[in-house]
Nucleic acid binder design. Structure first.
Lengths: 240, 240
DNA sequence: CAAGTATGTGACAGTAATGTTACCGGGAAG
DNA sequence: CTTCCCGGTAACATTACTGTCACATACTTG
């Protein structure tokens, strides 16, 4: 079995992150950590954990909010979520499960219980979908490898910042479809983040610039990112 | 998008109403205001706002009471509600969400956050209704794809401006029927906008020109847009 | 045919949307 | 602590679209 599954731990308290992290390490899981909803969302988009352990109480944006957002976005909608909470209230529980959360664990919990629940959820999910996971995304001679976090054109490395990487990955996974700035913000940056929409234009510019780095290619890869006036941006291999 | 949505602001403090009102005005929303639950209810019935911003604490009838009432009445039950509150307590939040409230914003909040949340809720609500709305519209070898925001004739791209795109989409959805300029103005440009009716003729011209871009087709697609003298325009396939 | 009305067409200027550059502040790395 | 990198923003530059006009053409009516 995939005991080397990666779990993202989202909690604002470092102590909890550490305790849970150690528990899961001992159980043979890989762990990533995030202290707030924004970082969590970035990590999820970026690293595609196999499961998210999500605290109900998060500063600057509740966990339930993030859960809802993850469910809505088709890229992240199949990542299972287990909610962590100090509250034993049935109301919360019902609310959480309604949001598409896979399970609900109340603090305090025993390590053994937590691990058991994680395994149960993973088994259930894996049974549903035989997953070919982080495969390399490719368009013509452009390759993006989520695992090694690397982009190449005709086997030559393309330098870009983390945000441009996530943006490109998003586009590669959602080609031929126009997204307005609002959608891009929500899907690439994450929920509960409030930025100027023009920020996107700048990152689009940076991404196009990065793709133009590699000279002498048959295809102008920066042209694949198309502006659709008043509508947003689109990644399309149809241009000529 | 329809940024001309109308928002009803319900708060007993005039200062808050003003601040929020200005914020939403700047974001391009229309606003109505109410100082208490009764006025709010009247305004909602009367003007059918697209969304209600509702203060938690209201004199003579709490906001949550109003929210509950709105949900119960079938006429108002699908109007989204965002609760405003000075209380940061999670309990309130959970209770609010259980009452069918769509989102919950605690004071103090940044204008940007408020606007973003409103947009998110509106998008979610709008998405629910119009999901079969995104199918490809086709007439002979002319295709208009709302998702990729693209028009093709025999798989070749047709360039046109945003207004021409909307116009063509409108015609494809309403074929064989004559519309006068007034109707076209209202249905394509939107209500409460005043333009010279002749403006439409110009856009019709531009659309016809765009459709003539693609040469060598069996069908002259620009001919499908027909002038009906003294009556308006009609999109009809009965002529080719 | 002439006059009157409706629509086609090309050009123009204001403006909205996007492209581009530069700067600042925060956080990580050393 | 300093340095460097990066993300977000603002300011400026550029592009593309919109709406209107003026004139041309077509149709209608008497």
């Amino acid at each position: 079995m995939a005991e080397d599954s990666t779990i993202l731990i989202v909690d604002d308290e470092a102590a909890i992150r550490d305790v849970v992290g150690i528990t899961l390490d001992l159980a043979g899981f890989d762990t990533i950590k995030a202290a707030n909803a924004r970082d969590a969302h970035v990590s999820i988009i970026d690293q595609k954990p196999d499961l998210v352990l999500l605290d109900w109480m998060l500063p600057g944006g509740s966990g339930i909010e993030l859960a809802r957002r993850l469910r809505r976005d088709e890229v992240t909608s199949n990542i299972p979520i287990i909610m962590l909470s100090a509250k034993a209230s049935e109301d919360n529980k019902v609310q959480g499960l309604n949001e598409g959360v896979d399970d609900y664990v109340t603090k305090p919990f025993s390590p053994r219980e937590l691990v058991a629940r994680i395994k149960t959820v993973l088994r259930r999910v894996n049974a549903k979908q035989g997953d070919g996971h982080d495969s390399v995304l490719q368009v013509f001679d452009l390759q993006l490898d989520p695992t090694s976090h690397r982009v190449t054109i005709e086997d030559r490395a393309v330098e870009m910042g983390p945000t441009e990487f996530r943006l490109l990955k998003f586009f590669l996974q959602n080609q031929e479809k126009v997204f307005n700035r609002d959608q891009i913000l929500n899907l690439v940056w994450g929920a509960n983040i409030y930025l100027e929409e023009r920020t996107i234009d700048v990152h689009i510019r940076r991404l196009r610039k990065a793709l133009s780095q590699v000279k002498g290619t048959t295809i102008n890869y920066s042209k694949l990112i198309q502006t659709v006036r008043t509508a947003g941006y689109r990644f399309s291999i149809r241009s000529a």
